[in-house]
């Protein structure tokens, strides 16, 4: 059985544990042994330790990676793009600057820990794409999406900078992998021209709430015009917070006139593989009943 470390991060376990539930369910259903990384901390988020200095960043990431190494894992998986970006960037920096790696290990050794750099960090959809494969995924689908039109959003941190990631789209400006997974589940995920646009969540959302929302509105409006999707499917939990939770608030505040249900790709995979909708979609805020009806209707 393939073993995969489940790296939780912050937003998923605290804000959207339904994604955590979905990842656990989906990975098990796809024959992974899911290993918890007890004691893991924040990746660390770009606005925290990376903004302190490079060594602090690397120490923070190495803490997490060393836990995975202790468990003899070859790879771990994240559901959050920031975690995927931060961990992989830190890995890259430590690889590139052995002196940093050495200092990191000097610090870690004070509590009996060690970072070697052996663990690969995947995000959820790349793990499925590379280590399960579309054909195998298709075979495991119990509730196909029945042509559900998905507006795919891989998320910036899952794409760039290309050089730091273990897996990626062939052309990160025309990403296909996430779309292909939606299609393997039986949906449609057509190309739209704002697919790589930033959703506005993150530091910008904290610093300039209203301004950041214009990014989301512009992206989604273009998407609606071009492909009129039934569901917004994101590869990153931050995109989910913006695409679902924040969207619900914006709707209440009268800032938008659309209503587009949104899920993390892990939720969609779990749903198609047979997970209980009440759990998978338990925390969804934008009404999603129509989508659920289409996929699981009568089941």
């Amino acid at each position: 059985m393939k073993r995969v470390g489940l790296y939780l991060g912050c937003n998923i376990p605290f804000r959207r544990p339904d994604v955590e539930y979905s990842m656990r369910y989906a990975l098990k259903a796809l024959d992974f042994e899911v290993v918890d990384l007890e004691g893991a901390a924040c990746c660390p988020a770009f606005g925290s330790m990376p903004s302190v200095d490079l060594l602090a960043w690397c120490v923070g990431s190495a803490w997490n990676l060393s836990i995975a190494e202790e468990k003899g894992l070859e790879y771990i998986v994240t559901g959050c793009g920031s975690c995927y970006g931060s961990l992989n960037e830190a890995k890259y920096h430590m690889e590139k600057h052995p002196e940093i790696k050495q200092k990191v290990n000097e610090i870690l050794s004070s509590v009996g820990k060690k970072y070697e750099g052996k663990v690969k960090v995947y995000n959820f959809y790349n793990l499925i794409y590379d280590l399960v494969g579309l054909d195998e995924l298709k075979r495991k689908v119990k509730f196909p999406l029945k042509g559900l039109i998905c507006g795919a959003q891989p998320g910036c941190h899952n794409l760039w900078p290309e050089k730091v990631f273990p897996a990626n789209d062939e052309n990160t400006f025309q990403p296909k992998r996430l779309r292909e997974i939606c299609e393997a589940l039986g949906g449609e995920a057509p190309w739209y021209s704002t697919i790589t646009d930033c959703c506005g969540m993150g530091a910008l959302g904290t610093l300039a709430k209203d301004k950041s929302e214009t990014l989301f509105i512009r992206k989604i409006k273009t998407m609606l015009e071009e492909i009129n999707p039934e569901l917004y499917v994101v590869g990153c939990s931050s995109c989910l917070l913006r695409g679902d939770n924040r969207q619900a608030v914006m709707k209440k505040e009268g800032k938008i006139d659309f209503e587009l249900p949104a899920v993390h790709i892990a939720q969609l995979v779990a749903l198609a593989l047979g997970a209980e909708p009440e759990k998978v979609l338990g925390l969804t805020e934008v009404p999603i009943e129509k989508v659920l009806e289409k996929i699981r209707g009568g089941a």
Binding site: C10, D18, E20, A40, A41, A45, S48, G282
Partner: peptide, 24 residues
């Protein structure tokens, strides 16, 4: 954790997950 949103225990319990995640 840089970001901890209040009320997580309830959210997690609802999904049948341990109230506090298996992190640090």
């Amino acid at each position: 954790h840089s970001v901890i949103t209040a009320g997580y225990e309830e959210r997690r319990r609802k999904l049948g997950l341990p109230e506090v995640p298996p992190t640090v």
